[in-house]
Amino acid sequence: MDELESIRQKRMQELQHSLEQKQYPSSTVTISDALFDEFVSKYPLVLVDCWAPWCGPCRMLSPILDELATEMQGKVVFGKLNVDDEKMTAVKFGITSIPAMLIFKDGKFVDQLIGAVPKQNIIQKLQSYM
């Protein structure tokens, strides 16, 4: 009976972990000023990419963030905020240069990365908050 209970508990943990991961988006999420606070508070660790369609470095960074959203699903959620369309949030966080990546832990702003930084630098920065 103990072995059966052990198997049952292990399976329950696996199912719970699987359910938790499914609740995390596996791709970047487009966010707006209106939903910004709700989005960054919904997940334990969030990276918000502040970008604009005309920005070359922003377009270079976009596929990297898409990859990271898939690779880090269940650990980090990635959002995209178009600063041309969503000016209030850009002003609130003093965004004067893009791409700018804002990092939030438990709904609070904790760090940022400016510029089209390499994928490994983004991973290292995020790992320091896991």
Rank of each mutant, 00 (worst) to 15 (best):
D2L: 15
L4E: 13
E5N: 14
S6L: 14
I7F: 09
R8I: 11
R8Y: 09
K10E: 13
Q13K: 14
Q13C: 03
E14Q: 15
H17M: 13
S18E: 15
E20F: 02
Q21F: 02
S26L: 04
S26A: 14
S27T: 15
V29M: 06
D33F: 01
F36P: 01
F39R: 13
F39T: 00
S41I: 07
K42G: 02
L47H: 10
V48E: 08
D49W: 03
C50T: 03
C50P: 04
A52P: 04
G56W: 04
P57Y: 10
C58H: 08
R59K: 15
R59L: 13
M60D: 11
S62R: 13
E67F: 00
L68C: 09
A69R: 11
T70H: 14
E71P: 01
M72P: 01
G74Q: 11
K75H: 06
D84Y: 10
D85G: 04
E86D: 09
E86H: 07
T89N: 05
K92N: 02
I95Y: 04
T96A: 12
M101P: 00
I103E: 14
K105W: 00
K105E: 12
D106C: 02
G107C: 07
G107D: 10
V110N: 12
L113V: 03
V117Y: 03
V117K: 12
Q120F: 02
Q120P: 02
Q120R: 12
I122W: 01
K125R: 15
L126E: 07
S128F: 06
Y129A: 13
